[in-house]
Nucleic acid binder design. Structure first.
Length: 271
DNA sequence: CACGGATCCTGATGGC
DNA sequence: TGCCATCAGGATCCGT
């Protein structure tokens, strides 16, 4: 499910409400992708200071240590004072004096991991290899081009790998490449400096726009208030196989790259 | 080392 | 309450 915009929208929907909360208890359900890494009792009494985001991870700063939360493919977060009893897909419940933070994740590709500090080995195993934040000042078109120059893989897969830039997932990779007019199968190293600059701009645009609209709702995304997003109304190519391109009316093509679906317009997007 | 493929898990959907 | 194959927003691990 969640790419950078959905994670950011999730963060915005509960960060200010949970700030300052005191943890009263934590309950875990079925195993997630990684174990929590500490006894739930150890979290009791700690305070939530802030919620940040790094790539697709939510970083929940505690008075001591932090929680790294990832939503995987199917995760969503709720925070409130009147949540229903935990269901079969609710695998992490953190009760605080200000409300309960819940991770709902049917496929369980998500995770919540406790780390003593952001720079310790536990946290760095997950965060250490992440690329630059696309919506930060540090995302530079020339540096971006420099990274692409060294990769002979298809540009779509380089975007998904998260080393050149974080947060771009399967939907927004197709969307950004359409916006930049670049064929997803083009080898990253063959992309010229001007086209890399176009892609750099397209990534910023598509992600910023999606955050502003409340995230994608392709299947089941909702923020921590339970409100659905509506990115699907604006998708130019994603999930539009065979439908006419919104720009030139040529039929949108669908291919597989690395076991993932890719969508593009063969007329608008040049190799 | 960079790359491609298999893999974790559950649910929805569509063909038969 | 039909059964089976395929697909779904992610990212790691393991061969080559």
């Amino acid at each position: 499910m969640p790419e950078l915009p959905e994670v950011e929208v999730t963060r915005l929907s509960f960060a200010s409400r949970i700030a300052g909360a005191r943890i009263e208890s934590v309950a875990v359900g079925k195993p997630l992708r990684w174990a929590l890494g500490c006894d739930v009792q150890q979290l009791q009494g700690r305070h939530v200071l802030a919620v940040r985001r790094r790539g697709k991870y939510l970083l929940i700063d505690l008075s001591s240590g932090l929680l790294l939360m990832h939503l995987g493919m199917s995760g969503s977060v709720s925070f409130g004072t009147d949540l229903p009893a935990a269901g079969k897909h609710d695998h992490f419940d953190m009760v605080t004096n200000l409300g309960t933070l819940r991770l709902h994740d049917p496929r369980r590709f998500g995770a919540v991991v406790f780390a003593g500090a952001e720079d310790d080995a536990v946290a760095q195993k997950l965060l250490g290899r992440l690329g630059v934040e696309p919506l930060s000042e540090g995302f530079d078109a020339l540096v971006f081009h420099g990274v692409l120059k060294n990769r002979k893989t298809a540009i779509k897969q380089v975007l998904l790998a998260g080393e050149a830039v974080v947060g771009v997932g399967n939907i927004y990779a197709s969307e950004a490449l359409f916006l930049a007019g670049i064929r997803p199968t083009t080898k990253a190293m063959q992309i010229s400096k001007p086209r890399a600059a176009l892609l750099h701009r397209a990534i910023q645009q598509v992600l910023t726009n999606a955050v502003a609209k409340g995230g994608s709702t392709l299947r089941d995304f909702s923020n921590a208030h339970g409100e659905a997003g509506h990115f699907q109304l604006d998708a130019m190519v994603y999930d539009r196989a065979g439908l006419p391109c919104r720009v030139c009316a040529a039929p949108i093509k669908s291919i597989r790259q690395g076991q993932r679906s890719t969508f593009y317009c063969a007329a608008c997007q040049k190799p």
